[in-house]
Nucleic acid binder design. Structure first.
Ligand SMILES: NC(=O)c1ccc[n+]([C@@H]2O[C@H](COP(=O)([O-])OP(=O)(O)OC[C@H]3O[C@@H](n4cnc5c(N)ncnc54)[C@H](O)[C@@H]3O)[C@@H](O)[C@H]2O)c1
Ligand SMILES: NC(=O)c1ccc[n+]([C@@H]2O[C@H](COP(=O)([O-])OP(=O)(O)OC[C@H]3O[C@@H](n4cnc5c(N)ncnc54)[C@H](O)[C@@H]3O)[C@@H](O)[C@H]2O)c1
Lengths: 211, 211
DNA sequence: TTTGTCCTGTGAATTGAATAACAAAAACTA
DNA sequence: TAGTTTTTGTTATTCAATTCACAGGACAAA
């Protein structure tokens, strides 16, 4: 696919492509070969137009009578969002949340594997949590370069997040997923995604209370 | 505050108010009494105009020379996003993630407390995980009504999410935070917020790979 | 007093994303 | 063959959120 086109795909479309792919994989495993936009839409609880527009943006054409070829579509989405030889990920802060994430991703996605965890707690250093080896944060640069890690997940306490992000950037991490409640700042060439669970829960609480 | 105005506050503003409040509480604990929009903006890594606009929407006026009164602002945000007598929350699926969440919220926010967990694993029923009592999902309606629970967090495996959401709605839950990768559907009067970690991680991976 | 600086508050313009609307293709129907 | 149905692909429109641009207040210094 053309580089310029890829740059212009909306963030939200990228997110939905990831979701379409997982839904399609389930359909494929159920023996389906083709699917209509309105069927995808129903699974994702969005509109069929939205689905068609997303597929239009990545340049995929469906069959007018049978819909989209599931296998082809999965493959195309793969060429867009996956990297050639997979991405390697590290978790910073192997506490309750870091452990849950590590356990969850263990052997789930071949192209996205958690290969290292960093912490400061001496009791955890040198152990293996959910199959992920835990190193001291001081060895971050060494391990990141050795293991060719490009992506890092922040699950340290909020007051440590800014400092941890700095270390990550200095060690060459190019994408950060920050789950601490403290916003961090990164240079232009590092992609940052932040998600704060407290905010989400407070938001739900707000819309639940009767006004 | 006027009901009509509250209804018109953008979703994104509600999210930021939650974050402003936490930042302000930290400032307050450091002895500050007033703060400028650009200072708030710097903490959150957004623009000062955004901050001023958000505060404008909730009808808060700052002092032209000293900025915003931190204490007053915290109180005002509280009247908007908090409920009168706090919200009670239940976690559905007390596995790795459910446990991490329960441990995390334990005693953190007085107005938002996790008071019950539901599971199907007989080994977990009747125990207490991170201070949260675990019940069988069959007792959901009974416990939800007894404990006056209005909010539920979904942390069951993806293939159980749709069924679990149905139970939640039937038992009178009015706000759902779905952390499973499977989208769920709810009636109009139930507020739904979904977050899929895999999507986020794949998104980061996409923007990290050089195009 | 006057001038300059540093804020806030807000209407107008812009951007980004979702939705509506519809042409055209394909296959079936009568 | 002519019409009906179903679905894709795309342009135009609407809606939501952010940013721009600037008026106007408060104070300090000259
Ligand atoms: N547990 C959850 O469900 C949950 C939910 C929302 C947000 N979070 C956020 O995730 C983060 C972690 O939460 P948790 O519940 O796992 O806490 P936790 O205390 O269980 O884990 C934190 C871990 O980080 C390690 N750590 C501390 N300082 C460090 C540093 N400078 N470098 C590397 N490691 C360091 C600690 O040793 C510990 O192992 C927090 O920021 C929290 O706000 C967690
Ligand atoms: N662990 C993570 O960090 C993580 C990250 C992203 C998403 N998730 C999602 O969160 C969910 C849970 O993940 P996990 O890692 O905690 O898995 P887990 O297997 O550790 O926990 C699932 C729990 O749900 C219970 N359960 C199963 N069916 C149930 C039902 N019908 N009703 C009530 N409880 C039921 C199980 O007994 C188990 O305790 C999954 O949907 C997963 O995709 C988890």
């Amino acid at each position: 696919m053309d580089q310029d086109i890829i740059k212009k795909i909306p963030h939200k479309t990228i997110e939905r492509l990831s979701q379409y792919r997982r839904a399609l994989l389930i359909c494929l495993s159920q023996g389906k070969t083709h699917i209509f936009s309105h069927e995808v839409a129903e699974i994702q609880h969005i509109t069929a137009v939205q689905v068609r527009r997303d597929l239009m943006l990545i340049g995929y054409s469906g069959n007018l009578r049978r819909g989209y070829n599931i296998k082809d579509l999965i493959a195309l989405i793969g060429t867009i969002i996956d990297s050639q030889d997979g991405q390697r990920v590290a978790v910073f802060g192997m506490g309750n949340f870091g452990r849950a994430i590590s356990a969850y991703f263990e052997g789930r996605r071949e192209r996205l594997s958690i290969v290292a965890g960093f912490d400061v707690n001496p009791q955890k250093i040198g152990t293996s949590i959910a199959g992920v080896p835990v190193y001291h944060i001081d060895r971050a640069c060494e391990i990141i370069s050795k293991e060719k890690i490009k992506i890092g997940i922040i699950t340290v306490p909020g007051n440590q997040a800014v400092e941890t992000a700095k270390i990550m950037v200095d060690c060459g991490i190019k994408g950060i997923l920050n789950y601490s409640p403290s916003p961090v700042k990164v240079p232009e060439d590092v992609f940052l995604e932040e998600y704060d669970m407290i905010t989400s829960l407070e938001k739900v609480a707000f819309y639940v209370k009767e006004h």
